[in-house]
Write a protein that binds this DNA or RNA. Structure first.
Lengths: 228, 228
DNA sequence: GTCTATAACGCGATAGAC
DNA sequence: GTCTATCGCGTTATAGAC
């Protein structure tokens, strides 16, 4: 029922032409704008950033493509907002988990849950990030440099916890922390490819399944029956 | 302005001078052609299928874009050949592993090794498959239906081995076979994002690391120290 | 805030000479 | 097997009316 957009007013925030960009801070946020971003995100996720045209985005919103440029400087500015919003939320959640004072295994488990949790909330953004990351990074300008910066910060947080786990004996010492982090990260994010809300398993179930296998392994407790 | 939607007729597949193609089987394979496919695959992997232009492919080969159409019917025909070649090789390797008479854990370990092994041989194809899968599948024609067919066959092979493992007590019974398969598959393929030949670890080391964690878990043997 | 109209450009693909 | 030349179309983005 999101057809409403006749709502004029809301203190017209001038976000255009010469306006800010880059920081994503910004106070007064237009609901209309957010709605457009959300529509665009779904299209980007479904068809890919490049294959999605501004005409399609506009059509989805019930306006013409030219009108989109009243709200955004460019198509890239839209996907920029999609990704930036997601990454800010993700990192904030991770930070909260790190400040929870849990032991490393508890924190790592929580981080896994956070990851799967964002699958539901930010499915479109995660899909775009995965499918179009390398293209966006390959663009001539530096607009998307923050993607790498955010990735690095997340990596630092994970690896720190894995090493803490090894230090206190909760994580086996013979695994490579960086490699292990990548393994975990990839496994979580890539699930957006097939995960659909409302399916057989929700993200919480998914997370528990993964935590179980991740920590205790696929093998049965009987380690004698195992050969390489 | 007419927006009469006149689709390019995709039904008229005209064969190319020089005959043969399609099945990738066989005989007189043009080295020239294969070279072009390889160049294109690298570009597709680096920039994405859509962002790669036929002019770029031709330039890489030192010819002009028009000349490409002596070898291929279309840009799609090129990526088709990239993916088809990879999938045929992958499935052949899996089949060999299944016929090895090993116990389930040995077969599953071998399948993990095969997966990581193809990372080196088919890095570009795997990247394209991951990044452009949904776009190619969304095309109006049925050209890429075989992607799903191949995926299904691979899934069947994995799940069969996981269930066999559970039946003989080598794989714990409380994991979901399908979910576990997806977890493994995703973890392997997605490594193309960061794996670079000649790096700190080769694919064999990568595979062993993963087999270790996958079967025995991240946790230390001391299961009393584990909560949650 | 949206529409009309269009500029400016790059794309995949084709025809025919050589 | 490649080049020259080009067609037809879709694309992002802009300018100005309303």
């Amino acid at each position: 029922m999101e057809h409403v957009n006749q709502r004029k007013s809301t203190t017209t925030v001038k976000r255009q032409t010469g306006g800010r960009r880059g920081t994503s801070m910004a106070g007064a946020v237009s609901e209309r704008r957010d709605h457009l971003v959300k529509l665009a995100a779904e299209l980007f996720a479904r068809k890919g950033f490049q294959a999605t045209t501004v005409r399609q985005i506009a059509e989805e919103a019930g306006i013409l493509s030219g009108s989109l440029y009243h709200h955004f400087d460019s198509k890239e500015a839209i996907v920029d907002e999609v990704l930036r919003t997601f990454l800010e939320d993700l990192i904030a959640r991770y930070r909260a988990a790190l400040h929870s004072d849990g032991d490393p295994r508890a924190v790592l488990s929580e981080m896994v849950r956070i990851g799967f949790g964002t699958l539901e909330l930010h499915r479109a953004a995660i899909t775009v990030m995965q499918n179009d990351w390398s293209y966006l990074r390959s663009l001539p300008d530096n607009r998307f440099d923050y993607l790498v910066k955010a990735e690095d910060e997340v990596e630092r947080m994970w690896i720190e916890q894995i090493k803490r786990g090894q230090a206190v004996g909760q994580v086996r010492g013979d695994v490579d922390p960086k490699l292990t982090y990548r393994m975990i990260r990839d496994t979580i994010w890539v699930a957006v490819r097939w995960f659909r809300p409302g399916g057989r398993l929700n993200t919480a179930g998914l997370a528990e399944h993964y935590v179980k296998v991740l920590f205790d392994g696929l093998a049965t407790g009987d380690r004698t029956s195992q050969q390489a």
